[in-house]
């Protein structure tokens, strides 16, 4: 299946949860927030929410800003 993550198309051989996606990107446990198809996925739901083909995911963190 294909996901669009932070604007980039990525292929995955099998289905996965939000948590598994973060893990595969080395981001599990980091202070990030996830949006799935324009809606925030709360941290407590990362393990239970599954991603499907064509999903649009945004993963954000904090950077310096005013």
């Amino acid at each position: 299946m294909q996901l669009k993550i932070n604007g980039e198309a990525k292929e995955f051989s099998r289905g996965l949860t939000v948590y598994a996606l973060l893990e595969s990107l080395g981001l599990a446990g980091k202070q990030v927030a996830v949006e799935l198809n324009r809606e925030v996925v709360k941290k407590e739901d990362h393990m239970s929410v599954s991603l499907k083909d064509g999903d649009i995911v945004e993963i954000i963190h904090f950077v310096g800003g005013g």
Binding site: I5, E8, L25, I59, I60, H61, F62, V63, G66
Partner: peptide, 8 residues
Amino acid sequence: VAVRRINI
């Protein structure tokens, strides 16, 4: 702080 995409 600003909210930005992380480098995946």
